[in-house]
């Protein structure tokens, strides 16, 4: 949802980078199929990771698109995983925009919500249970934040459960492993995002889960340890999955991309122009 889950490009082999790009394009096409042009703005790295994680097979095709109208780009389909990931990201993006509109956060989100509405309706027709589950959890999260709940874990749990729900269609051990992996990944994203927003939230007087737990000007080493431990739980779950074609990319993301993102978040350089973050990304 926020771009924290991405590979460390410099350490990827070229062929693995191509595969990652193909997965990204594949997701974009799947989103377009679901909700037209608007879906394209909701494509992101995190859900590309999800698609690669859920997918087991990899079928390549090439196609032109609006970003590359002349040269056909390689795209890949990961069985049904691509469509599943596309639906989930449309649903989440819509709900996030919906939330922001209710918080009166400006015209931008109103526009986004409008654009995503059709896709949301279609995707939730397909995955009604998931949409309902997300809605409930995000509502609970909003309530907790309104109450200024000081338990970081409890706040993160709501968001993490949403991500873990993406493993719902899997079976047996794989479902357990993916559930745990995505739950911890959800925690990672939630905490990292809260750290990123800390300054802005303080200025606007908004609730911030990390500030509520560690104080306005926290000692970053505690948060770093928390993120590291969370990452450890992600990787320990990941290692129990069987290898697929995506393994090199996924490993890069988990063992290199996430630490780089965490480091950038902690020293405040995440999302700054490339020049300043050269060290990390």
């Amino acid at each position: 949802m926020f771009g924290y889950v991405r590979p460390l490009k410099a350490e990827l082999k070229v062929k693995d980078y191509e595969l990652f790009k193909a997965a990204y394009c594949g997701l974009c096409h799947a989103m377009k199929k679901r909700c037209g042009i608007a879906g394209r703005f909701a494509v992101n790295y995190d859900f590309t990771f999800l698609a690669m994680l859920l997918g087991d097979e990899c079928e390549m095709y090439s196609r032109r698109c609006i970003a590359s109208p002349f040269v056909k780009k390689n795209c890949c389909r990961c069985g049904t995983a691509m469509d599943r990931a596309a639906d989930m990201s449309v649903i989440l993006a819509y709900l996030k925009a919906d939330d922001a509109v209710r918080d009166r956060e400006g015209f931008r989100y109103r526009l986004a919500r409008m654009a995503l509405h059709r896709g949301y309706v279609r995707a939730s027709r397909e995955r009604g249970e998931f949409a309902l589950f997300c809605r409930e959890r995000l509502k609970e999260l909003a309530l907790l934040e309104e109450k200024r709940n000081p338990s970081l874990d409890e706040n993160a749990d709501k968001f993490a459960s949403v991500l873990a729900q993406a493993a719902q269609d899997e079976k047996g051990d794989r479902k357990r492993i993916l559930g745990q992996l995505l739950y911890q990944l959800g925690r990672f994203i939630y905490i990292a995002d809260a750290v990123c927003d800390m300054e802005q939230d303080a200025k606007a007087g908004r609730f911030n889960a990390v500030a509520a737990r560690y104080g306005e000007k926290p000692d970053m080493s505690g948060i770093e340890r928390l993120l590291d431990h969370t990452r450890g739980l992600i990787s320990s779950a990941y290692e129990l999955l069987d290898a697929t074609e995506y393994t090199p990319v996924l490993e890069n993301i988990i063992y290199l991309g996430l630490p780089a993102a965490a480091a950038a978040v902690l020293d405040g350089s995440f999302g700054l122009p490339r020049k300043k973050t050269k060290e990390h990304l």
């Binding site: 338990s151 970081l152 409890e154 745990q180 925690r187 928390l226 739980l233």
Partner: peptide
């Protein structure tokens, strides 16, 4: 219990 359900901080 907290650790088992992934609530590391608690």
């Amino acid at each position: 219990v907290d650790y088992k359900r992934g609530w590391i901080d608690e």
